[in-house]
């Protein structure tokens, strides 16, 4: 039986624009749930450039992607948004009464009055490594994420990559596997130094292996690998393995958004510039995923879109209710909502 969640608004995407939408909707007493495929808030800011300085956020001469995310999380905390991470919205349908029903790949159902698509460039999906025929092993013996640790118990595991995911799973899985080999094309890692040190200790203690090289072909049958070939300076090295975890980073794919019956323009959702509403009334699109004449893919544009969307969404959530426009500088009512008076 699916877990059913009823709310005013579901925001698809917890990047900077989705997060700020919580603020604008919150000022109007509209309650939000957010769904994101990543395991944390921030979207591209967190995944692609957490350390990169951004110079064009109004009022911030410089802020990093992670810094902006942290600030937004602090700014929206008074509104108690509820986050659902590491899942993808697979289905979105409009019900006869005009409300919406969403399904996620984590077997949840959301019922809501308004949907805000703030999905940026689409959903982040793991990159498939450059290995021929890898598809036939996927989700059987080759995995791009660890969903159940037990799938790796007493297995001969090969982990490929030099980032935090590769290092974290090397450390987490080591105690339960039969053998573990970490493969990276060089002897330098883009991961937390503490994890790198711990990994090196495990190698010294002989508990895991580290090989410098690249994965080549896979041997196996019926979806089950038995050897991973590693191209090393010394030549091709076949490595006995029953599980492969390649961590080659993430890439953005539009994903299920294309199937929701929304009018698209070159894979972007067409919206008007008064409400930022899509071709389906009640479904709004803000940030990088929308398209309108003059659109600029800037975070600040997404913030503006969120503010105007919120006014229109409020009218859908509370029909007939008069919305009084107020400023946070002068309205005690708004200040109470923010918890500052």
């Amino acid at each position: 039986m699916s877990n059913e969640i009823v709310t005013d608004v579901v925001i698809i995407g917890a990047g900077p624009v989705g997060l700020f939408a919580v603020f604008e909707l919150g000022l109007l007493d509209v309650k939000c749930h957010l769904i994101d495929i990543l395991d944390r808030p921030g979207g591209q800011c967190a995944e692609l450039y957490p350390e990169k300085p951004i110079y064009d956020i109004p009022g911030f001469p410089m802020v990093t992607g992670q810094g902006l995310t942290d600030n937004l999380m602090q700014q929206i905390a008074p509104f108690g948004p509820e986050f659902h991470f590491s899942r993808m919205v697979t289905k979105l349908e409009k019900l006869e009464d005009g409300t919406f029903r969403l399904e996620t790949d984590a077997d949840e159902v959301f019922l809501c009055k308004v949907v805000v698509v703030a999905a940026g460039g689409g959903s982040f999906q793991p990159k498939r490594p450059p290995v021929e025929g890898i598809e036939q092993y996927e989700n059987k013996s080759v995995f791009y994420a660890v969903r159940k640790m037990d799938d790796f118990r007493d297995q001969d595991v090969v982990i490929v990559g030099g980032g935090d995911s590769a290092l974290d799973w090397t450390l987490n899985l080591q105690p339960i596997v039969r053998s573990l080999t970490l493969v990276h094309r060089r002897d330098a890692f883009k991961a937390a130094p503490a994890s790198v040190n711990k990994m090196k200790e495990l190698v010294m203690e002989g508990k895991i292996n580290f090989l410098m090289g690249q994965i080549g072909k896979l041997d196996g049958k019926d979806g089950q690998i038995d050897h991973v070939h590693i191209a090393m300076d010394s030549g091709d090295t076949p490595l006995p393995a029953t599980r492969l975890l390649p961590f080659f980073g993430l890439t953005m794919k539009l994903g299920p958004v294309a199937d929701w019956g929304l009018e698209l323009n070159d894979n972007l959702i067409t919206v008007d510039t008064a409400k930022f509403e899509s071709s389906v009334p009640g479904i709004f699109a803000i940030g990088d995923i929308n398209h309108y004449p003059g659109k600029l893919k800037l975070i600040l544009s997404g913030f503006h879109e969120a503010a105007l969307m919120a006014q229109a969404a409020k009218a859908v959530v509370s029909p007939g209710e008069r919305v009084v426009f107020q400023y946070t500088t002068s309205s005690t009512k708004l200040q109470k909502k923010l918890g500052v008076v």
Binding site: R128, P130, R185, R186, K190, F248, G249
Partner: peptide, 14 residues
Amino acid sequence: SDDEEDLLYSTLDK
């Protein structure tokens, strides 16, 4: 840079 090389090695058509 090393980062650029890592990324190039992640493509199918390097």
